[in-house]
Design a protein around this nucleic acid. Structure first.
Lengths: 176, 176
DNA sequence: CTCTTATTTCAGTCTTGACAGAAATTTAGG
DNA sequence: CCTAAATTTCTGTCAAGACTGAAATAAGAG
């Protein structure tokens, strides 16, 4: 079995993008492959399709499982592990948002809180600097809150929100 | 001149985060330093404060300028270049959003459009696969549209939107 | 309990990209 | 023009981490 040209293109591109945003190429390629696959795949099938080492597939799948993106299934009378990916894009979106929050926002938030306190004791620090730190802290806090709220929004509502985009703003000013 | 402990902590952390999201450590450190600095800095001052090579500062500033995050200024009677960073966090936000769109969304969008066409000619591709590609394409298109709309929203409105978060959804269902 | 097959862990290799330092170029003043 | 200061470009080195292949472990079947 082999990838069709279009699917191969998708998988390769996804792999490249993966490196741009936190994971490595293989992890992203496997996710793409499983997403496009109409049925769960075994590790050894992935090895063949992507031409990567068996061990690499093993660790990559582990990573995907830890994100909640991939789950294991089994076939009757076959003890090998089969893997499948979340197939709903909006579910994917939520998982990725959560990952980003954990890896990018949370550490920064805790650093900013620390620094905001520490800088209070530094008389040699310019007031402008202190203010900038405060501003950044508040911004990251808002963003973090926003991420959390979005997690809980059901898919159809999210879709509407996105479609609307800034349309909402027209309904806003009156609310102050 | 030297960094205070709090400022140093901020700059170092920011540098690490920078690697997590597309640029390198030095670029992010310089951005942090300029953001916190109450006045524009010269390249050689940055060299001293961060202990990096002059050449490194030069290329990093170029990168920041290309993003529109840093601009050059001058002092009367001093021909050396001074640099300062956007200091409004919401402006920063917009610039970063734009960068992310260009580096992550746009290439993927064009790949997906290509693939969606190409896969149409592949009779050996499973219908489920074709549907998944369509779904992803639509999702990325929505996201891309949303990014663009957000770019144009004035800061106070953005702030309100974020604060509201999902509060908006309560006003939604009736609108269908 | 042993053999076979599937999976994971681990150590070494290789690739990528950041960074320093030197060389080249640009720019303003004399 | 020529000189000196500032800046940029370029090349080699180094470090981080992705990936492979081998060795170790686990888990069913007979």
């Amino acid at each position: 079995m082999d990838l069709t040209p279009a699917v191969e293109k998708y998988v390769l591109h996804w792999g490249e993008m993966g490196t741009r945003w936190g994971t490595n190429r293989t992890v992203a390629q496997i996710q793409a492959l499983l997403y496009l696959s109409p049925r769960p795949l075994r590790a050894d099938e992935i090895v063949d399709l992507l031409s990567v080492a068996r061990s690499n597939v093993s660790t990559s799948i582990r990573e995907l499982q830890s994100y909640g993106l991939v789950k294991m299934t089994h076939m009757l009378g076959d003890r090998r592990d089969y893997f499948e990916c979340l197939s709903d894009v909006w579910e994917l979106f939520r998982v990725i948002l959560e990952q980003r929050k954990q890896r990018e926002l949370n550490p920064t938030l805790s650093m900013l809180r620390d620094v905001a306190v520490e800088v209070g004791d530094e008389s040699e620090t310019d007031p402008v600097t202190k203010e900038r730190i405060q501003n950044m802290l508040q911004f990251v806090e808002s963003t973090s809150d926003w991420y959390e709220k979005i997690q809980g929004v059901p898919t159809p509502t999210l879709q509407k929100l996105m479609k609307l985009g800034t349309g909402i703003t027209k309904a806003l000013p009156s609310k102050k």
